Structure formats: structure tokens, C-alpha cells
Simulated assay, not measured.
Amino acid sequence: MIAMLKGACLVVDDSSTVRKAARRMLEQLGFNVREAGDGQEALNACRADLPRAVLLDRNMPVMDGLVFLRALREEFGPDQPVVIMCTTEAGTEQILEGLEAGAQEYVMKPFDREVLASKLAQAGLLPA
């Protein structure tokens, strides 16, 4: 049985391995997934077709996650799309910086489907 689609999610990470793993998890949770390898690609993708959600890596070349997030919020407003910042940095300062830039949630790498589903539910994208 195919899950009802929850909308589009853009996975933004410079690691193709992380993008593929996240894509698999998100598709299993019912999302239509697109990918971007850096913040500039992601901003272009959002301008072409704004997704419902963005799973965003913090540290990337070309345009990092924070620069992308600030540009996204300036262009599209504070609420849409929902952004979940994804990183290996566990420091409170880094987490607060991401949330203050406009992320609704934060998930630590590595994560599994259950952790991701929990964060999506906390962000209002899946039933709790």
C-alpha cells in the first residue's frame, strides 16, 4: 500500500550518500523528494517550486545552510517552507543559531527514520 503523499521535501546536503538515505526515509514516510547539493542549488529549487519542507545540512560548500536559510526566509517569509536543520554539530550555540535563522526543528546526524519522523511530527508535517 502506498502512503498518501505529504507534499514535497527538498533534501539539501553536499553528501550524495546522506541525500540518498534521507530520500529513502522521507519517501517511506510519504513525501515526494527532490535533492540539492548546496544552498545555492536549494534556493534555485525553491524559487522554481517551493516545497512544503526542507531538510537542510548546515555545513556545505558554495552556500552553507545558514546563509541559505536566511535568504529563504527573506524571500519567502518566516513559516514556509518548514525547515529542519540537519548537522553533526551538537553545540547549543549552533542549534540556537539555526533556530534563530528560521529553522523550525533541528536533527543530529546520523539519524534514523524514527528520529526523522519524530522531528517531522514536531514540525507539524506528520501526525504526532
Rank of each mutant, 00 (worst) to 15 (best):
A128Q: 13
L43P: 08
D79T: 11
G30K: 05
C86D: 11
R52M: 13
A103Y: 02
P81V: 08
L99A: 01
R113W: 06
L66P: 00
A123V: 03
A53M: 15
T92P: 11
L10E: 07
E93R: 11
C46H: 10
V107I: 15
S15A: 14
G65I: 07
D112K: 09
F111M: 00
M85E: 07
P81H: 08
E105W: 04
A3W: 07
A103N: 06
G77C: 11
S15T: 07
A8V: 03
A117E: 12
L50Q: 10
P110K: 03
V67L: 13
L10R: 03
A36V: 06
K119I: 06
L125F: 10
M108E: 09
A48P: 08
R34D: 13
R52L: 15
K119V: 12
F76L: 02
D57L: 04
M25D: 13
Q80T: 12
D38R: 00
R113V: 13
T17C: 14
K119C: 11
K20G: 10
A3N: 13
A48L: 11
R113A: 11
L99D: 08
D14A: 02
V54K: 07
R58Q: 13
A45D: 09
M60Q: 09
T92G: 02
A121V: 05
R73S: 03
M85T: 02
C86W: 09
P110C: 04
A101V: 01
A8M: 11
M25N: 09
V33G: 08
A42G: 05
A128L: 07
L29R: 02
D38Y: 01
Q94P: 00
T92V: 13
R113L: 12
R19P: 06
L29I: 06
L72I: 00
A22S: 14
D112N: 15
R70Y: 08
E97K: 06
M4Y: 01
L56P: 03
Q122I: 00
M108F: 13
Q104C: 01
V33R: 14
P51G: 06
A22N: 08
L26T: 03
D112T: 10
Q28K: 15
L55D: 07
K109A: 03
L55H: 09
Q94H: 15
L55S: 02
P51R: 10
R47Y: 14
E114V: 11
D38H: 13
R19L: 02
V107Y: 07
L26A: 03
D13I: 08
E27H: 06
R70V: 06
Y106G: 00
L43C: 03
G124A: 01
L55N: 06
F76S: 00
V62F: 05
G7L: 10
L56W: 04
G37H: 09
M60V: 02
R19H: 09
D49M: 12
E75V: 04
A117K: 11
F31M: 08
V18S: 06
L50I: 12
L116I: 05
K20E: 15
G102D: 08
A36G: 01
Q104Y: 00
D14N: 09
E35S: 13
V67F: 08
S16A: 15
P51T: 04
A101H: 07
F76D: 01
I95P: 04
A45T: 04
A123H: 05
E100K: 13
L29G: 02
A3F: 07
Y106V: 00
L120A: 02
A22E: 12
V11P: 10
T87A: 00
D13T: 01
E93A: 14
S15K: 09
